[in-house]
Amino acid sequence: MALEIIELCTNCWACQPLCPSQAIFEAKPHFLIDANKCTECAGDFEDPQCATICPIEGAILNEDGEPLNPPGSLTGIPTQKLAA
């Protein structure tokens, strides 16, 4: 049970202080989640905090590699325009 931050991350620091498990750490070229520590916030919060504040669509994935915030879900930008 762990989430993963991928290269779309813009290093905005928003997620790091919110993590109840101190699983998120600054790294190069982008922030990372320590899979051993991440609890997906179970028992602490209803929603995984990192993915709840992250402004970048697709930057955080679940264990199946699916984005918690898929394209268009945060900005409302129609996906065909995003691709362009």
Partner: peptide, 14 residues
């Protein structure tokens, strides 16, 4: 101060 807690439609958070 890098983080933000809202999204504005005129902002690209990159």
């Amino acid at each position: 101060a890098p983080a933000c807690n809202i999204q504005c439609n005129y902002c690209n958070r990159k």
